[in-house]
Design a protein around this nucleic acid. Sequence first.
DNA 1: GCCGTTTTCGGCCCGACTGTTTTCAGTCG
Length: 580
Amino acid sequence: MTREAAAEIFERIALLMELKGENPFKIRAYKTGAEVVESYAGDIMQLARDNQLAGIKGIGDALRDKLHEMALTGKLEFYEKLKAEFPEGLFALFDISGLGPKKIAALYSKLGVASLADLRRVCESGEAAKISGFGDKTVVKILEAIAFREQHASVFRQDQVYGLVQSMLEQLRAHPSVSRAEVCGSFRRGKETVGDLDFLVATKRPEEVIADFVKLPEVNKIIAQGGTKASVYATNGVQCDLRAVSSAEYPFALNYFTGSKEHNVVMRQRALDRGLSLNEYGFKPSQEGGSVPEEAAEIYEEKEIYRLLGLDYIEPELRENSGEFDASEKGRLPKLIELENLRGVFHNHTTASDGKATLREMAEAAMELGLQYLGIADHSKSSFQANGLDEKRLRAQLAEIRELNAEYAGQFRIFAGSEVDILKDGSLDFDDELLAELDYCVASVHNVFNLPEAEMTARIIRAIENPHVTMLGHVTGRLLALRPSYAVNIPAVIDAAAATNTIIELNASAWRLDMDWRWWRLAAEKGVKCSINPDAHSTRGLQDVLLGVRAARKGWLTRKDVINCLPLAEVEAALRAKER
DNA sequence: GCCGTTTTCGGCCCGACTGTTTTCAGTCG
């Protein structure tokens, strides 16, 4: 069993206990346990198998035994019994914004609501509004939340599929009859979420490869299986399609199945303009009696298809038919940022607020990743829920950082910052005097999400105009497929950032990827710099920068647009650019 | 269920907002 699966079971135990009205502290212990399992720096499942879990904070006797059982048997008796007390569909109700355990328990016990469909029915029929604690407004909100949820029903964040993609690709590439394999579709294009996964292989024995594909351990259910393609559901619920083509067809199929649909339409039109018809198998003459030029018959790489159509190679992330053809024709495609360009990371949390690792552990993890610097930005005092730091604790952390920096002298640098709350009126949670003592400051909205657009925009711009705000955190507050962005005028925010030399964060957490890639070209054109921030709450969380880089590439950004590509010697000046 | 320089019991994060109420329960961050 993977650590993700074990953490998920602890989380579900917590949900079920909430439904049963169990001791809230017991529930919290399971939630904490899930977080520890998820973010532990080390192979916690191996430790669980070997019974070596003693001394891990947050894992006591009970959770230790349960982890051991899961690691050994792949199951947990305790959870199976608990789960059997409630219908499976109840879990989906927790994803409805505004519904918590008490309301779900009431709906279940009073009206027998056991699924999203049931929930919609009792809301529409008026039954729900009659339950004590429910009213008309609650019902309207629930129906709105169901609609939002359904729009995003089969949507998966990258962290939910990344491991699956790597593992399936690895197994496909290792197959003796497979010469090449790749993942296509929206995943290859670096979209923030995906609906399904499209795999492609080049092989001379398609049926054999497909027969082995549907037997992979990650496959939960076969939807369809034929001579050249198969569709399955993976254990985490993602639909995975596999197409098997010949080696000669492979570059064409790779291009076709990567999309986007709109990009493909332009590609085929360009081919027609050259007397060629393009599909997923290759070039053909577009008219009878026509011919295919020699170079079109000898294509091995995707790049050569673009060249034949008079284009520079277009990276998959840019294939949205949003200007890439024009730039490609003119030789003006950007040289996209790469993971290796990053020299450091800002906006990270420690145990001082709601992080799982200490300052020193975070610094050492960053060093191990080959980074030159690490920016800390723990929550400020208004974020009670996240154990935000008050002035005194922040100053203490500042002193601790100075000491560590003395120890690391020359090798590595920690930048002392704060993720300071933007209060309802746009003022900040700390006064200017304290902010001036920091190396940098990320300002973020964490509460009162329901302001009208004009007010929210003014609130954020007021924060941007503070000379000590180095960068703006997660601009829209969205949680992918879970909670929409609050109302905010992003072009106005970008203009304000440009006018004040304020950096905008690309929050690299798989849940956020905020600011959205669709806005980065505009921001870069206006001269706004980006900071790819992992918003790490654990040492493992630092690796989310990978997702941030993918989103930045999709936003046409180069290393010159991203301040944490700067070497240590230059980045400090960049942090001070605004104050100057 | 976890934890402990106040250690084997007693405490465990806090306040805003919303919608339902008529003083508060539930949800959220």
